[in-house]
Design a protein around this nucleic acid. Sequence first.
DNA 1: ACAAACTTTGACTCTCAGGTCAAGTTATGA
DNA 2: TCATAACTTGACCTGAGAGTCAAAGTTTGT
Lengths: 221, 221
Amino acid sequence: MATTRVDEAADEAPVSRVQRKRDRRIQEILTTAAELFGERGYDAVSLEDVAERLDVTKGSLYYYFPSKDQLGISAVETLGNRWTARLEELLAGLDGPVHDRLRGLIGEHISIAVRDYPAGLRMFLVPQDWPEQQRAVIKELRQRHDRLFRELIDEGVAAGDFTVTGVDAALRCMHASMSQSAVWFAGLEGQRLERAIAELTDTLMMLVGVMPGAGTAPDQA
Amino acid sequence: MATTRVDEAADEAPVSRVQRKRDRRIQEILTTAAELFGERGYDAVSLEDVAERLDVTKGSLYYYFPSKDQLGISAVETLGNRWTARLEELLAGLDGPVHDRLRGLIGEHISIAVRDYPAGLRMFLVPQDWPEQQRAVIKELRQRHDRLFRELIDEGVAAGDFTVTGVDAALRCMHASMSQSAVWFAGLEGQRLERAIAELTDTLMMLVGVMPGAGTAPDQA
DNA sequence: ACAAACTTTGACTCTCAGGTCAAGTTATGA
DNA sequence: TCATAACTTGACCTGAGAGTCAAAGTTTGT
């Protein structure tokens, strides 16, 4: 503990204990804010609401963020990063035939979305509801998600597993449905939720030309 | 023109000349309001905005509607009725194999939605954005649209034309995609819009198990 | 123990949008 | 032409929420 000022030298990450504490606080705020924005929409949530859930007062938030919009942008960014990271991680951990990986990715995407990020989805639905600056962030997020799916689909198409025609439209439908799922499935739990997700997954798999019950290899033609 | 007071007797429709004028005014207001709500969302539109576009002042609106919410409900209702009526009419005018009719319905639905009712779609996306009372109206509207599609699909399934599994999920995806199309295709025009709609239609047809290029009867198995 | 840095508070201002209304304008019908 | 009903106006009230800030409270390093 005899650190006189060692960290002063390290020029990469934010370092000092006080800095870390500040960062943690900021994360707390962002998480809570994202939660609320997701529940009720950006406009409908006041900073007083956010403050209340954090058990502080509005003024505190302004100590960390210069405006509601800035808080909104950061919240969206953080949420998006966590979400995407989780998907990327999941995908990295998957192996086997493309069909199975895609199925896993779709299912998990919906599952994560509904369970953990109903918040995040709302922003995909009507980007215009968010202030100008957020839209850029949202757009980028969307593209990252898009890429994950597209790469997998391309792989499947190259391998001859999928018969998808019109990848763009298919991807759009997938995203639309997955986003909407947060609205549709809100309130469902346990078995019923499982089943709803499974059914939606099957349907979406159809969009890339792979029937749900067809097994791994289509050797019945 | 020698009407002394003939209409006083008719007890069904709203009658007097003054009444009809009033009704026309109300329709104007509702149309404009729905337009604006659709463009920017219910919350983001102030009555002053609505009044401005109508070239009157806010006070006038309160002469016809007791509150913003009531105006909102009526706007949603009117819009929904016109939209559904148009779809029903369209469907009634279609004939030929189920496949073609469904394709026509989907294409027109998207086309109408994007071109004439970008307004109306927004409310399907996140019903929670609307006040409690509107949601009932929205839900009913959704069910009416749902029924149109479902009946057609059921007919196709009965006839053995479609291989759809999980009608609910498929319908959900269709609605999600059609609603989102108003967001995706906003700004597109002419050829590009045509093509986008066509591609989306093809993709959605796939959801009910009918490949776009497969012709009317699947006699190639 | 204590000063400096960091954090939180709550009372304040400002603006904007919903809603009211008395007074004015315009249309209707006899 | 004129009384009456229909409509419109604009000034006003109100509450809510964004944003500010001096002062008070807490943590930190020495």
